[in-house]
């Protein structure tokens, strides 16, 4: 009984915080500060020569982020291959 009451109070507080946060969001499609978006939309084709502005952001303006993404992929592949190869070798020797 006591645990249920505590759970109910925690639930109400969390839901209140969630509703509060949702009500604070600015209207959809109207960001507060759009300087960066406007700059990229207006200048991306001229500066990078790419018609696909998403590709221009991914591989030119925010390419360092893509480098991190590629590193994550590389690390994941390396980890899977290392783990599975090590387990295979252990099975062969034992």
């Amino acid at each position: 009984m006591k645990r249920q009451v505590t759970g109910l109070i925690v639930l109400i507080v969390l839901v209140a915080f969630l509703v509060w946060g949702v009500m604070l969001i600015h209207p959809f499609g109207y960001p507060d500060a759009s300087d960066m978006d406007d700059y990229i939309i207006e200048n991306a084709q001229e500066e990078t020569g790419s018609n696909n502005v998403v590709a221009a952001v991914l591989f030119d303006y925010r390419a360092l982020d893509t480098l991190g993404e590629a590193t994550i992929l590389f690390t994941a592949v390396m980890g899977v291959l290392l783990l599975l190869r090590a387990s295979k070798r252990k099975k062969e020797t034992s």
Binding site: G49, S50, D60, A63
Partner: peptide, 10 residues
């Protein structure tokens, strides 16, 4: 033939 290094990086 546009995009600079973007096609190569792709």
């Amino acid at each position: 033939w546009t995009g600079g290094v973007i096609p190569l990086m792709n």
